[in-house]
Nucleic acid binder design. Structure first.
Lengths: 341, 341
DNA sequence: ATGAAAGCGCTAACAT
DNA sequence: ATGTTAGCGCTTTCAT
């Protein structure tokens, strides 16, 4: 592990010049800059992040806090964020909160504060005002992905609109008995996603005069399995069977498709199904969905953060950037055929 | 952001005592220890990891390097590792190599070397001797999960044995035409997992005198979709249709089950299917499988690392710890019925 | 454009 | 058991 002075010696300059040459801050003649670079690479020199961090107060490391890890969506966001951070020369330190309340406290009260990270990206976490203040007080920019967060730059998708779009797609195909399999309001760790999606669904129905039928709403736990069982209930109803289902996520939509198959219903002939996400398996199942682009979300979060890291363009207060979404029509939805059983 | 001297002042002691009291190193009377703790928490003091890292050479941060993020297996390993690291007061910095070759080089040549991490956990990565040397040279313990790695402590599952067990299960149920859907040898980033699994499969067959039929081996890309298509080929064969399929992963096994369903075959009556993993969806699909316990793997890796971090019990050379696995019998496998079509 | 030197905030060896 | 103090390896004024 060579240090900066060995590089300085080999290049025949002072450590100050090495530092300047390597970091790009301050003026160094092209010639010496080159000599320094050569010396550094010959020795395999890499700056010590502790030393550099101590001297500058910047660590080139970003903390990413997520509520779960084992969900396709989060993996994709992290992947996008990581890629972009690496390209900016930043590391990504991960804090997964799926453990429970105590873990969350210790992350916010200790881990994030020990000057290991320059900034924080919070994914689908409704930070408490206290948590936000804590971070902002020590001058750490925070970017939230997934919902409005007071005092913080955020990126979020308009869940109500996304749901409305999905539901409208079904309506436009002539469906009127449209069920919604949504998340349980119980575990709304995230930004009322279940509630918002339900609202969009109801708004779309009401807009065209279809009364909202509470028996066509089935809450479950946001998993394929949960949706499978919920769908069976819905589809088993002899009187009021829906002709279409809007599921709050693709995994749930896939559960619905599997349930329909098991009940001998053909998708889309007997039942149209639409989800949200554009999950990696959506194409395989021919699932119509409203795509959100989690990798892009991760990348965008990083770009915004990089902006914030340059104090000159640090926007204060809450600013929300809307996230893109897009209807992707595949084979799981079709025009409602009134003659179908 | 209070510093150590403010705490020292408030507690009426020297900074050295504060350091000792808070870190637990060196002797401090219980009384002062308590006073220091009170002062620290009153001020909201948290040590600066840069300063502490610079002074000690330890960062309380571990780098975890993985080839992919978007696979159930990796998410689970990371989750296990993270949980255990947090409980030891360590952070986890993630390096996802799914980007490609260049990314890998920059991670090993720069990111991991800038003294940001105390140690490295490599998951299913066949580190080159150069990569290992680089890390070991700067005295960073490395633990590999997933395969033998010269010069490094590793944890690995005996893939050959796992496969043999899975195959034997099918044999013991009376199956003789057993197909294997395995990974493509092309993309063996990891430890020849596809090859090893295939070997175990063949060994099990040969052990009972069943000739290995190359037409019953279908390589594909380790995804549900890939296996679905491979399975269709296998199951479509009018003459030589297998009565059982051993898939190299649960996702592939699920793809196989879906393919069988689509071809009108009942599982397990017409076709038995077994996988490897005990994936979160295995239970839902009633999949018989050989469980490996990825979260546990992550946890164990951390425990071994913690050992290595105390130089007194640092084992040199390569030591491999075998990882547990377990046959989980569910409904996707059944005795072969010779009368079945 | 480059060098000298003073920290950054903590830890650990050495004193007491 | 506690205090004093010299670094840890960089960055960044301030000179030149």
């Amino acid at each position: 592990m060579p240090g900066i002075d060995e590089v300085a010696q080999l290049a025949g300059v002072s450590t100050a010049t090495v530092s300047r040459a390597l970091s790009g801050r301050g003026h160094v003649s092209p010639a010496t800059k080159e000599r320094v670079a050569a010396a550094a690479s010959e020795l395999g020199y890499v700056v010590s992040s502790s030393a550099s961090g101590l001297a500058t107060g910047r660590t080139r490391n970003v903390g990413v806090v997520i509520p779960f890890l084992n969900r396709w969506f989060y993996g994709a966001v992290i992947e996008g964020a990581q890629r972009r951070l690496l390209s900016h020369g930043y590391d990504l330190t991960l804090y997964n909160l799926s453990g429970g309340g105590d873990e969350r406290r210790s992350v916010f009260e200790h881990f994030l504060l020990r000057k290991r990270v320059d900034a924080v990206i919070a994914i689908n976490l409704e930070l408490t005002p206290d948590e936000v203040t804590r971070l902002l007080d020590i001058d750490k920019p925070v970017v939230g992905v997934g919902g409005p967060l007071t005092g913080v730059r955020t990126l979020s998708i308009d869940d109500v609109e996304v749901s409305r779009l999905a539901t409208e797609h079904l309506v436009s195909l002539g469906h009127r008995r449209i069920a919604h399999i949504g998340g349980d309001v119980e575990d709304e760790r995230d930004f009322h996603v279940p509630t918002n999606r339900r609202e969009g669904y109801e708004a779309a129905l009401e807009a065209v005069g279809i009364p909202v039928d509470p028996t066509l709403y089935a809450p479950c736990d946001f998993t394929l399995q949960g949706a499978y069982h919920a769908a069976k209930q819905l589809l088993g109803s002899p009187r009021n069977r829906p002709t279409a289902v809007f599921a709050a996520s693709d995994e749930m939509a896939i559960g619905t498709i599997l349930a329909a198959r098991d009940m001998g219903l053909r998708v889309p002939d007997d039942l149209s199904v639409i989800g949200i996400d554009d999950h990696e398996l959506a194409e395989f199942f021919g699932l119509t969905t409203v795509a959100q682009f989690p990798e892009l979300q991760g990348e965008l979060a990083v770009e915004i953060l990089m902006d914030q890291l340059h104090p000159e363009n640090r926007a204060h207060g809450s600013l929300n950037t809307p996230l893109p979404y897009e209807l992707v029509v595949r084979g799981s939805t079709a025009r409602h055929d009134p003659r179908a059983r």
